[in-house]
Simulated assay, not measured.
Amino acid sequence: MASISGKPSKSKEVRETKEKIVALLSKLKIEEVIEIKDWLNKYVDETPLEQITANHEKEQKKKILEKGAQKLDRIATFLKDKGVDVPSKELNKLKYPTEGFDSDCNEINTCEVDSFLYDDDDVEELVQQNQLSRSYCPDCNSRNTIPLNFISHSLSRLQIKFLFDKLMPPTCQNVLDIGSRLGAVVYGASLFTNGNVHTVGVEMDSDYAALALQTIRQFGLKNIEILREDIRHLPQVFKENQFIVMNNVFSFFLSKTEQEECWEFLHTHMRPGTVLAHHPPVEKITEHLDLSFAVEDWLEFVNTTEQCSEYAGDDSEIFEEMESICKYIVKNPEV
């Protein structure tokens, strides 16, 4: 069978496809084979080349996503095996918010579990093994238990795939992950785009930054740059045609004044047209801050209900998990 251009193809994939077609046709009667032949000729003659190309690109993207998801799982296993961010009953060192969103969290009622490393099944297994609890007792030796607040400073693997499958513009050439932590988002950016976008991860913690660099080398990930720095010192990382990802990177780590400085810096340096994916809503985590601008004047909220539905199917929990990531576009101040 000739290719659409009329030239015979020597690719392995085409040869294997021909063999599969012959195997399928061998199961049919001659009149059924003729019917398939007529249908195929009609399909090739009447289907626009643009549509055939689009179908091919869609199938190739599906393969990249599936392959990327498998490798992202292997990366998470690699990091868990290294004992990175093990859920602990011990009190942690976070700076719990005292105002605004998440101010109900404190070192007693909150448990930090990294969603990139531990999915719901992992958490349930830890609970069954008595290595983790879902509740705590505010009164010593009392049965008056209260559910713990579970927080994560990483997006889950499902959310990371969603970012690059549904939220990132297809024309995007630059990804910026602010507060890169374990590097989960930058790994996803490389895997789910086949290394075709330039990705920068910014992380203040030297141990996390070193770990991300080690993981990038270990798995041969392409086109990633890790900067161990405060985002306020990096105006040069903001580009045109950029996709920026943030997972509540300031609230649990910086003072109120420092958070205000960070948001003012972002407001100054994010380019118009930039797409921002933020978890949770920017409006909620900044409402208690004293900023020189209104979020709604700076960012245009983009409704992603359709994309969440496509991704989640009939699974309401996955829908809610994806919907918690908010998409914005930086407005042009001159318009």
Rank of each mutant, 00 (worst) to 15 (best):
residue 1 M to F: 07
residue 1 M to Y: 09
residue 2 A to N: 13
residue 9 S to Q: 09
residue 9 S to K: 04
residue 10 K to G: 15
residue 12 K to V: 10
residue 20 K to M: 14
residue 21 I to P: 08
residue 23 A to S: 15
residue 24 L to S: 13
residue 26 S to M: 15
residue 28 L to W: 03
residue 29 K to D: 13
residue 31 E to R: 09
residue 33 V to D: 03
residue 34 I to Y: 09
residue 35 E to G: 10
residue 37 K to W: 11
residue 41 N to W: 08
residue 41 N to A: 09
residue 42 K to E: 12
residue 44 V to L: 11
residue 44 V to F: 13
residue 54 A to Q: 12
residue 54 A to M: 08
residue 54 A to P: 04
residue 56 H to M: 12
residue 59 E to H: 12
residue 62 K to E: 15
residue 62 K to Q: 12
residue 64 I to E: 06
residue 65 L to I: 08
residue 70 Q to A: 13
residue 71 K to E: 10
residue 71 K to D: 06
residue 71 K to I: 12
residue 74 R to K: 15
residue 75 I to W: 02
residue 78 F to C: 07
residue 79 L to A: 04
residue 80 K to A: 08
residue 82 K to E: 10
residue 84 V to P: 00
residue 87 P to T: 02
residue 91 L to T: 14
residue 91 L to C: 09
residue 95 K to G: 12
residue 103 S to C: 05
residue 107 E to K: 11
residue 108 I to E: 13
residue 108 I to Q: 11
residue 108 I to S: 11
residue 109 N to R: 02
residue 110 T to Q: 02
residue 111 C to R: 12
residue 115 S to L: 07
residue 122 D to A: 06
residue 122 D to Q: 06
residue 123 V to S: 06
residue 124 E to W: 07
residue 128 Q to R: 12
residue 129 Q to G: 07
residue 130 N to D: 10
residue 131 Q to K: 14
residue 131 Q to Y: 09
residue 132 L to H: 00
residue 132 L to K: 00
residue 133 S to L: 08
residue 134 R to G: 07
residue 134 R to T: 12
residue 140 C to A: 14
residue 145 T to Y: 12
residue 146 I to F: 14
residue 147 P to V: 01
residue 148 L to S: 01
residue 153 H to K: 11
residue 154 S to Q: 05
residue 156 S to Y: 03
residue 157 R to H: 05
residue 157 R to A: 04
residue 169 P to V: 03
residue 170 P to C: 08
residue 170 P to W: 05
residue 174 N to Y: 13
residue 182 L to A: 02
residue 182 L to C: 07
residue 187 Y to C: 05
residue 189 A to V: 04
residue 196 N to S: 10
residue 201 G to V: 00
residue 202 V to N: 02
residue 203 E to I: 01
residue 204 M to F: 08
residue 209 A to I: 02
residue 212 A to I: 08
residue 213 L to V: 13
residue 215 T to Y: 01
residue 216 I to G: 00
residue 218 Q to A: 15
residue 225 E to I: 07
residue 226 I to P: 00
residue 226 I to R: 01
residue 227 L to S: 04
residue 228 R to H: 13
residue 234 L to G: 01
residue 235 P to I: 00
residue 237 V to C: 06
residue 238 F to G: 03
residue 239 K to N: 07
residue 247 N to R: 08
residue 255 S to H: 01
residue 260 E to V: 03
residue 263 W to F: 15
residue 267 H to N: 10
residue 268 T to K: 15
residue 269 H to Q: 07
residue 273 G to H: 06
residue 273 G to V: 00
residue 274 T to V: 05
residue 276 L to K: 00
residue 276 L to W: 00
residue 280 P to Y: 05
residue 288 H to C: 14
residue 288 H to Q: 07
residue 291 L to W: 04
residue 293 F to I: 05
residue 296 E to W: 10
residue 297 D to C: 05
residue 298 W to C: 04
residue 299 L to I: 06
residue 300 E to S: 14
residue 300 E to Y: 09
residue 301 F to T: 14
residue 301 F to D: 15
residue 305 T to A: 15
residue 306 E to P: 06
residue 309 S to H: 10
residue 314 D to E: 14
residue 314 D to S: 15
residue 314 D to Y: 12
residue 322 M to C: 14
residue 322 M to G: 00
residue 323 E to Y: 14
residue 323 E to P: 06
residue 324 S to V: 06
residue 328 Y to I: 04
residue 329 I to W: 05
